[in-house]
Simulated assay, not measured.
Amino acid sequence: MTALCTALPDHLCLLLVDDHRIFLDGLSLALAPLCPDLQIHTAQNAAEAERCLRQRDFDLILLDLRLPDIAGLDLLQRWQQQGRMTPVAILSGSDSNLDAQAAIAAGALGFIPKSADGDGLRQAVTRVLLGETLPLTIDKPPLTPRQQEILLLLADGLPNKAISRHLGLAEDTIKTHLKALFQELDVHTRTACVSAARQRGWL
């Protein structure tokens, strides 16, 4: 056992949720040195994860962002609404600060990229288990000041015509800005745009 683990208890029970079996196996091996009596349970989708949670308590859940039956952040928000107190850290193939920001906004205590090596992974997991929220370097929204104004008005439920009147811009200009916002957030509707912006902490 490495020195960084000495503050952890001898017994820990973790739940790893990821739809790739080989990744779960590798993750289990990488986490094995955390403590002498480490129990690891795995789930490959949200339904399996919820079944595990009904059967026992866990010290930490490591949750993938992309699951076959429900998005990881949606699952995390569901657990938050249910009042589930188990700490959750997001494990993701993404190194995006935007994804990290969305994870923290949804209630995760940390965001760990899958590109982390074994030592980095154990260090991150240890810090979350000890009650830390992993520090993040969060980028400001990659939006222009004008786009941020339009996003705020969109969130207020204003139609394009009202936004253009409010900002003194042509309606076509508003549409151009909205198209850029939709592309940035990878959405296709106004409601989804506002929802995605809130998830990322932009609103």
Results as ranks from 00 to 15, higher is better:
M1E: 14
A3G: 13
L4D: 13
T6F: 14
T6M: 15
L8S: 08
P9E: 09
L12V: 07
L15R: 08
V17A: 10
V17Y: 08
D19N: 10
I22C: 04
F23D: 00
G26H: 03
L27Q: 10
S28A: 12
P33D: 12
P36W: 13
P36R: 13
A43P: 04
N45V: 06
A46Y: 06
E48D: 12
A49W: 03
A49V: 03
C52E: 15
R54K: 14
R56Q: 15
D57P: 05
D59Q: 15
L65V: 00
R66C: 01
R66K: 01
L67Q: 07
P68G: 05
I70E: 10
A71S: 03
G72L: 00
D74I: 02
Q80W: 04
Q81P: 06
Q82K: 14
M85L: 15
M85N: 15
A89N: 11
L91P: 06
G93V: 00
G93T: 03
S94I: 02
L98A: 00
L98F: 04
G110L: 07
G110K: 03
F111S: 04
I112T: 04
I112Y: 02
I112C: 05
K114M: 09
D117C: 02
D117Y: 02
G120Q: 13
G120W: 01
G120C: 03
Q123R: 15
A124E: 05
T126G: 02
L134N: 07
L134G: 10
K140Q: 10
Q147F: 02
L154S: 08
G157C: 00
G157P: 00
A162I: 03
G168K: 06
G168Q: 08
D172P: 01
I174P: 01
I174K: 00
I174N: 00
K179L: 13
L181W: 09
Q183T: 14
D186T: 09
T191E: 13
R198N: 07
